[in-house]
Design a protein around this nucleic acid. Structure first.
Lengths: 336, 336
DNA sequence: TATTTTCATGAAAGCGATTTCAATATCTAT
DNA sequence: ATAGATATTGAAATCGCTTTCATGAAAATA
């Protein structure tokens, strides 16, 4: 009992008009006599006609679908951006093809290619690093690409971010002002530019300005996860650091919980500042002081930029930098 | 400088074969002489030909795309299922069109329809409630639908879940065994069957078996969020309950944090058990005792079922119930 | 009223694949 | 070598819609 699909042709026949006319009313083309429009609409209603988006995509060469590449949907940070992306996409009648890339270069390239094969009108890319291969694919792609919460040091691809380096610098400077001299920094892989070229750079700048020595033994590389944090904690504890800046909220929560469990008091023995201001910072105890980012907006703005690009409009600015802030919570002492 | 796309026709011409043959080699059809295949492959390589998935979809009537409806990507519980879905989908070469529904009936229907218009081969639906309207749409849809982490009391739509009622009953029974007589239960909207017909039912059964009175003043309705939890906490505190079962991890975290802040000790003054075993249960302090669910697998199994359905195969069982467990963490006392 | 313009509409050509069916090759077994 | 079977190919129809172009009708202008 295959369900019968009603096509534009059926509607045309029933309404005694041509397919072209049906197409016009479906697409809101004004060149249709009101009476005709009404007649067609009635038939559409009666037959319960739904235009086939695939056929439409083939004929018009626009799929009203955009691809979204995300490291992992279960990552709250990126998921928050994704929510902003989807809302704006929906507002502009686009659908989202979402694919997890696990932050793996090869997978990212694959995924990008299958997205292009699906004729997406554009792509929003989220990830922690962009290598030459990927950058080349972006250029090669015939649909525009916008980065959300993702830096491209070359600045070639349009992107939306906050000023990570400045934010980290400010956070670390606050720590320094409170008297800390041994400040650790726990990041994701230093092979990723977001860590090496932005966060770490901001950290170094803060030390520099305060004339504090930079010691790479205080720089830790781990994964973006709670478990990575718990595993890293003993190492940090051994370093003698009295404060730590962390690049990921879940990691920070792991460090905090493991610290408390081993008798280290937060913030008295160790102050902790994290990066993303996700809900995790509120759930953890003590709650975690964090750089704040307009998560939803990063996604939303990226999607807005993409819609412009998809309609061949010029971008006001290719690299958008949204404001950040810092909220103090229980994992740091109050400033004197 | 529009990027030129190379079509199957170009390949056919260059390789001096017909489009049909090119199509065959692209699709791995064995009826092609090895020599021809090689020749065509070479041209494909040289021209960097990528089949247009939209055209393919139109011709073959299969889009190798499945729709996924999720209440909110930033909800860790559903995002975890989504991850399982996407992994299996990718394994079977399907892509995912992901859309947020905000758990709103009307929006869900809309989204389902636009997905069908996009000719998805199937859809996986996640949500907290299925009303008649939605159920009717599922039936009407010409692509199969599978529910993941979502109950349909009518059992009409294939689904993957755990036995929520039994799990809650077990959790509450454990509480009762530890001597609690006033046990509160905090759920999402009771208009949703997952809450009213499953969780609450399990709760009642546990009370019944223990011959404890059921008092609807101990039943709380709130949202699935951290803030909802913090707001609900004072109300629960006033009730005099000494334990509470919570239907959502973030809500549980909110209740716990607000309790501790107002001087209530967890688990000494109030024991808390939650439902979803997301990472939140580990981040919170005390860590939260929880029903455990195979989150990833619920999604993965649902997607596996969907692939069968999409290939017109029979399902071994329409309603799959995966095993649950209970992990004790700091928010409850140890059993004596 | 005759002549332009402007509107509405339909015919038909794609869009880039898949797929059926018939035709041609190639292989077997006499 | 030859009929029959089998393996390879290509021609052409389709999928369901958009869009261009031509045409007749209606409205505006002279």
């Amino acid at each position: 009992m295959e369900k019968q699909t009603v096509t534009i042709y059926d509607v045309a026949r029933e309404a005694a008009v041509s397919m072209a006319t049906v197409s016009r009313v479906v697409n809101g083309n004004p060149n249709v006599k009101p009476a005709t429009r009404k007649k067609v609409l009635a038939v559409i209603e009666r037959l319960d006609y739904r235009p086939n988006a695939v056929a439409r995509g083939l004929a018009s060469k626009r799929s009203t679908t955009v691809g979204v590449i995300i490291p992992d949907v279960t990552n709250i940070y990126f998921a928050s951006l994704a929510r902003g992306i989807d809302d704006i996409a929906m507002m502009y009648k686009y659908n989202i093809i979402l694919t997890n890339s696990d932050d793996a270069g090869e997978q990212e390239v694959n995924v990008l290619n299958t997205l292009m094969a699906k004729q997406v009108d554009g792509v929003i890319f989220m990830g922690n690093h962009i290598d030459d291969k990927l950058r080349a694919e972006f250029k090669r792609a015939k649909a525009p690409v916008v980065l959300a919460g993702t830096v491209d040091p070359q600045g070639e691809t349009p992107s939306v971010n906050i000023d990570y380096a400045a934010a980290v610098e400010e956070a670390v400077t606050a720590l320094i002002k409170r008297g800390h001299e041994k400040i650790a920094i726990a990041l994701g892989p230093l092979s990723q530019s977001i860590n090496a070229e932005y966060r770490l750079a901001g950290y170094k700048r803060a030390l520099n300005k305060a004339k504090l020595p930079y010691d790479d033994k205080l720089v830790y590389e781990a994964g973006y996860s709670y478990d990575a944090g718990t595993k890293l904690q003993p190492v940090i504890a051994d370093s003698g650091a009295t404060a730590v800046f962390v690049g990921d909220d879940e990691m920070a929560a792991g460090i905090i919980n493991a610290s408390v469990e081993s008798g280290i008091s937060i913030p008295d023995d160790l102050e902790v500042i994290t990066s993303n201001d996700t809900i995790v910072t509120q759930i953890a105890r003590p709650a975690i002081t964090s750089i704040t980012q307009p998560l939803y907006d990063i996604g939303a703005v990226a999607m807005r930029m993409l819609t412009k690009l998809m309609n061949d409009k010029e971008l006001d600015e290719k690299t958008v930098t949204l404001p950040y802030g810092i909220v103090r919570r229980g994992s740091t002492k109050s400033a004197e």
